[in-house]
């Protein structure tokens, strides 16, 4: 009986202190970590079309189409198929692909989530923060260059 009363006292204490742990989401957006991995942003100016991201992607999410002169034509990324592992960002030698902190994206069909180059370029920053700067101090550790063959080109 005492244990039951203790249980009830505990919940009543929570009810009376009026504290809330949840947030009212659209009005109060969460602070996400600078390392947070959201939807991708692509920069065509930086991209050298080396295809490393396409090769490393565990899920075949990225599709790159180049012409016979190795000039990039298409950069397609299915953000619904992506597992947000950030390996593409890690292997990219020029920061052309970056996972923003933006987690607010939707689509009515699966096809809506297959982003083309233009859509990827227009992905907005979350709260206007470019996470690249905050990730800078850690860039050294992302992927050690290591020995062994370089498996692109």
């Amino acid at each position: 009986m005492i244990g039951m009363l203790k249980s009830m006292a505990t919940t009543m204490k929570h009810a009376l202190d009026g504290e809330k742990f949840t947030v009212q989401y659209p009005e109060e957006t969460p602070e996400v970590s600078p390392r947070f991995r959201g939807v991708h942003k692509f920069s065509q100016e930086r991209c050298i079309w080396c295809r490393q991201c396409e090769k490393v992607c565990p899920n075949d999410t990225i599709q790159i189409v180049t012409d016979d002169m190795r000039n990039g034509e298409q950069y397609n990324l299915h953000i619904g198929q992506c597992i947000y592992c950030r390996l593409c960002e890690e292997v990219c030698p020029v920061d052309a692909i970056l996972l923003t902190q933006n987690f607010e994206f939707t689509g009515d069909t699966k096809d809506d989530l297959a982003y083309s180059k233009e859509q990827l370029k227009n992905v907005p920053w979350y709260k206007d923060i470019d996470p690249l700067a905050s990730r800078e101090p850690d860039r050294e550790g992302w992927v050690g260059e290591g020995d062994g063959e370089v498996d692109y080109q």
Binding site: T11, M12, H14, A15, G18, E19, K20, F21, T22, Q24
Partner: peptide, 9 residues
């Protein structure tokens, strides 16, 4: 009431 007991809105 349930929300009050569980610290939620």
């Amino acid at each position: 009431v349930t929300a009050a007991f569980t610290d939620r809105y």
